[in-house]
């Protein structure tokens, strides 16, 4: 699964730490998400999408091997 959290974060002018604080995870988790090393739970995906005022589909996309 890929995501564009990094792009969304830049649009909203947030650092990794800001974003982490807003949705209640550690900065390392945001880092792992952006690097594509971690697939978040549905709750976390919904929280991120709500913060960015997008739908989940606009932030997260399936890849061919999913």
């Amino acid at each position: 699964m890929k995501n564009n959290i990094k792009v969304q974060r830049a649009i909203h002018n947030l650092t990794q730490q800001d974003l982490a604080d807003k949705i209640g995870v550690s900065r390392q988790t945001i880092n792992a998400l952006e690097a594509g090393k971690y697939v978040p739970s549905t709750v976390l995906a919904l929280k991120l999408a709500r913060l960015f005022e997008k739908t989940v589909n606009e932030v997260f996309q399936l890849e061919d091997d999913d």
């Binding site: 995870v25 390392q28 988790t29």
Partner: peptide, 9 residues
């Protein structure tokens, strides 16, 4: 200290 779902995993 910062417990979240990645730590749980």
């Amino acid at each position: 200290k910062h417990e979240d779902e990645l730590v749980a995993s």
